[in-house]
């Protein structure tokens, strides 16, 4: 048995023990997400426009994460709508980021490993860079919007008479917590993903001047920042939408305004 199959089996058993019947949706969601990423890669290789492909399948991935998690339909709908708006804003943000940063492709660092490949593959690596940055932020967007929407929903159900102003205040406070924890998750996730690269930089004694202009280094930092911006945008948008849609949570909104 391969390592991946063994790990998947252990994960499945642990999920059954800890989450019981939710195992199906969590594990199933993970497998579907994997298939989506695989689809993105295959479609891009077949020649579809990379950013558009990532955007369309990204919308599906968001739906998978949000609606496969145990939220009510309305909470899920709010979380999804927010995520869609944020991902569209991200596309608008990523295009200038890629244009000014030129973050595409591979660095001089990978020359050795690339030797055997033909690099003239006729697919735009600048667009693939945009697709990669967009997809790596998706999980964080979904998690933040679910956390915000669920917390605000709980608040509205607990105190239906909450004024609009109070809701915004509480939203900001919950938002701070959601952001702080999401930043941590992203920080360690990205650094855990790129540790090899950072050790490489240090071992080869890259000077600060070289580092701050290096394509790969800046590409990684830009990816983290885009994900952080995504979470930051998710927070107030969810509060805004929850305030607008509070009546959908069967709550009297006459006390409003």
């Amino acid at each position: 048995m391969g390592v991946v199959s063994a790990l998947a089996l252990v994960l499945l058993v642990l999920l059954l023990l800890v989450t019981g019947k939710d195992t199906f949706s969590i594990f199933g969601g993970l497998i579907l997400n994997f298939l989506m990423i695989f689809m993105v890669i295959i479609l891009i290789s077949l020649g579809t426009p990379p950013l558009l492909t990532a955007l369309i399948l990204g919308l599906l991935i968001l739906a998978l994460i949000i609606f496969f998690s145990p939220v009510t339909l309305t909470t899920g709908a709010v979380a999804y709508l927010v995520s869609v708006v944020v991902i569209l804003l991200l596309v608008v943000l990523i295009l200038p980021v890629q244009y000014f940063g030129q973050l595409q492709g591979f660095g001089n660092e990978s020359n050795e490993e690339l030797g055997v490949f033909s690099l003239l593959i006729g697919i735009s690596f600048p667009q693939i860079a945009c697709a990669t940055i967009l997809l790596s932020a998706l999980g964080a967007i979904a998690e933040a919007s679910i956390a915000m929407a669920s917390a605000l929903r709980a608040l509205l159900i607990e105190t239906p008479s909450l004024s609009k102003h109070q809701l915004y205040q509480d939203g900001r406070q919950i938002g701070r917590k959601v952001m702080a924890t999401a930043f941590n998750t992203l920080f360690f996730g990205f650094f855990g993903g790129y540790l090899a690269l950072f050790i490489w930089f240090v071992e080869l004694k890259y000077s600060p001047a070289l580092l701050i202009n290096d394509k790969l280094f800046i590409a990684e930092i830009a990816s983290i920042i885009i994900a952080i911006v995504a979470v930051t945008l998710t927070v107030p948008l969810t509060t805004f939408l929850m305030t607008r849609w509070r009546h959908k949570f069967e709550i009297d909104n006459r006390s409003d305004s």
């Binding site: 999920l15 800890v18 989450t19 019981g20 939710d22 949706s25 969590i26 969601g29 993970l30 997400n33 994997f34 990423i37 993105v40 890669i41 891009i44 991935i61 994460i65 496969f68 998690s69 145990p70 939220v71 492709g105 591979f106 690596f125 693939i128 860079a129 697709a131 990669t132 940055i133 997809l135 790596s136 932020a137 998706l138 999980g139 964080a140 979904a142 998690e143 679910i146 956390a147 669920s150 999401a182 998750t185 992203l186 996730g189 990205f190 993903g193 790129y194 994900a227």
Partner: peptide
């Protein structure tokens, strides 16, 4: 825990997998 496990796994999954695309 049951509620947050799924989304948390997805965050890391997407970071690690998106990186492999190029």
């Amino acid at each position: 825990g049951r509620q947050i496990i799924g989304p948390l796994i997805s965050i890391l999954f997407l970071i690690f997998m998106a990186d492999t695309i190029p």
